[in-house]
């Protein structure tokens, strides 16, 4: 599944970052997304907006659904 399909309040690990858009992949990696990092969707955007606010390790990152869909995750579980 991808990060944007992850329910709010469930943590997971980054399995892979899709490379089909190399520029987007590089952007996601630069801000910090990497394989085996812990992620959790913390907040959805307001009023049906497509944005999500994601916890990456101890860092908060805002992105849109389209960008979040490029991050594959595994091992979804209830956040501790």
């Amino acid at each position: 599944m991808t990060l944007h399909e992850l329910e709010i309040g469930r943590a997971a690990w980054v399995a892979a970052i899709a490379e089909d858009d190399p520029d987007l992949a590089a952007k996601l990696r630069e801000i910090g997304f990497a394989e085996n990092d812990e992620v959790e969707v913390m907040h959805a955007g307001p009023l049906g907006a497509t944005g999500v606010c994601v916890r990456l390790n101890r860092t908060l990152i805002a992105l849109r659904a389209g960008e979040a869909a490029a991050i594959r995750v595994r091992g979804a579980r209830a956040s501790g």
């Binding site: 996601l28 801000i31 910090g32 860092t59 908060l60 990152i61 805002a62 992105l63 389209g66 960008e67």
Partner: peptide, 9 residues
């Protein structure tokens, strides 16, 4: 353009 932005503590 994509939005990828860190939200500081």
């Amino acid at each position: 353009q994509p939005l990828i932005m860190e939200l500081p503590t």
